[in-house]
Amino acid sequence: MKKLLVLVLLATALVAAPSATPTAAAGAGSVVLDGVTVKPRPGTRQVVTVNRTRGWRARVVFWGRHDGRWQRQFTATDGRIGYNGLVRPTRRVQGSGTTPLGTFRLPYSFGMHPQRDAWDPSYRRVRRGDYWVLDNQSAHYNRYRNRRQGGFRWRLGSSHPDSSERLKDYPQQYEWAVVTSFNRRQVKRRGGAIFLHVNGSGATAGCVSAPRWFLKRAVRRLSSGAAPVIAIGR
């Protein structure tokens, strides 16, 4: 009878035990998802993790938080990072081809397609004359701006160290793209235009990229109300 009672108690404990989750503690307020330390913001319910696998290759995963648990939504194994690898954010230099480590907000997305009713209203369609400013002499450094607004040297050629990105020049990569909060304080010469965007032919110049299907699905699911972040790890 005692053996039977022990077996019953063990079975009850196994049923009552919580199921395994893909998260692990990593310091106060942090979690580990797919081996990447994430520092969510208050209210964060969407996360994109970027785990470098080799060289400039990476695994990119979209996560959602439901009923208090992080759940993997979809995964791309053919992600890309900068051609010179990863670097701490404070050590990054403009034009270095490096991708910053850490957790960053995903404040809004942009792309070549018109807005859809089901998408987050923060989405912005690229228009003629839209640039991402990388002119170190501009007060609009590391900001989205149209040339008609002025305030930056949009005529500088692509070989100039202060040239800005004309977004229409990247119809493939920026068909769907998501802005990160890297260098939101506009520290000069640290660089910017660090996005999550569609894969090109190889490594990026510092962004994170993933296959077209991944970005298409991500842009349709991201919600500013879910305080989404991207976490980039080794």
Results as ranks from 00 to 15, higher is better:
residue 53 T to K: 06
residue 53 T to V: 06
residue 55 G to P: 01
residue 59 R to W: 04
residue 61 V to M: 06
residue 61 V to A: 11
residue 62 F to I: 01
residue 63 W to Q: 09
residue 64 G to W: 07
residue 65 R to T: 04
residue 68 G to K: 05
residue 68 G to T: 02
residue 69 R to N: 11
residue 69 R to I: 08
residue 70 W to P: 06
residue 72 R to G: 11
residue 73 Q to D: 12
residue 73 Q to Y: 08
residue 75 T to P: 02
residue 76 A to T: 03
residue 77 T to Y: 07
residue 78 D to T: 06
residue 78 D to Q: 11
residue 80 R to Q: 08
residue 81 I to Y: 10
residue 82 G to A: 07
residue 83 Y to Q: 05
residue 84 N to R: 11
residue 85 G to Y: 00
residue 87 V to H: 00
residue 88 R to D: 07
residue 90 T to I: 10
residue 90 T to Y: 06
residue 90 T to L: 07
residue 91 R to H: 10
residue 92 R to H: 00
residue 92 R to W: 02
residue 93 V to Q: 03
residue 93 V to T: 09
residue 93 V to K: 08
residue 93 V to I: 09
residue 94 Q to G: 08
residue 94 Q to A: 12
residue 95 G to H: 00
residue 96 S to C: 06
residue 97 G to R: 01
residue 97 G to H: 01
residue 98 T to N: 05
residue 98 T to L: 04
residue 98 T to H: 07
residue 98 T to M: 11
residue 100 P to G: 03
residue 100 P to N: 01
residue 102 G to A: 04
residue 103 T to Y: 00
residue 104 F to P: 05
residue 104 F to M: 00
residue 105 R to D: 13
residue 107 P to D: 03
residue 108 Y to T: 10
residue 108 Y to D: 10
residue 109 S to L: 05
residue 110 F to Y: 10
residue 110 F to L: 14
residue 111 G to T: 05
residue 111 G to V: 08
residue 113 H to L: 13
residue 116 R to F: 02
residue 116 R to M: 03
residue 118 A to Y: 12
residue 118 A to C: 02
residue 118 A to F: 07
residue 119 W to T: 02
residue 120 D to C: 04
residue 121 P to Y: 01
residue 121 P to H: 00
residue 121 P to R: 01
residue 121 P to F: 01
residue 121 P to V: 04
residue 121 P to W: 03
residue 121 P to N: 00
residue 122 S to L: 13
residue 123 Y to F: 07
residue 125 R to K: 13
residue 125 R to Y: 09
residue 126 V to S: 00
residue 126 V to K: 00
residue 128 R to H: 13
residue 129 G to F: 05
residue 131 Y to T: 02
residue 133 V to S: 01
residue 134 L to D: 06
residue 135 D to H: 01
residue 135 D to C: 03
residue 136 N to H: 13
residue 137 Q to L: 12
residue 137 Q to D: 15
residue 139 A to Q: 13
residue 140 H to I: 02
residue 140 H to G: 05
residue 140 H to Y: 15
residue 141 Y to V: 00
residue 143 R to G: 14
residue 144 Y to R: 07
residue 146 N to V: 02
residue 147 R to Y: 13
residue 150 G to L: 06
residue 151 G to N: 10
residue 152 F to P: 09
residue 153 R to H: 15
residue 155 R to K: 15
residue 155 R to W: 15
residue 156 L to G: 13
residue 159 S to L: 14
residue 159 S to N: 15
residue 160 H to E: 13
residue 161 P to L: 12
residue 162 D to M: 09
residue 163 S to T: 14
residue 163 S to I: 08
residue 165 E to W: 13
residue 165 E to V: 15
residue 165 E to K: 14
residue 168 K to M: 15
residue 169 D to Y: 14
residue 172 Q to W: 12
residue 174 Y to S: 03
residue 175 E to M: 12
residue 175 E to K: 12
residue 175 E to D: 14
residue 176 W to R: 09
residue 177 A to N: 03
residue 179 V to E: 09
residue 180 T to M: 04
residue 182 F to V: 10
residue 183 N to W: 04
residue 183 N to T: 12
residue 184 R to L: 03
residue 184 R to K: 10
residue 184 R to A: 14
residue 185 R to Y: 07
residue 192 G to A: 09
residue 194 I to M: 06
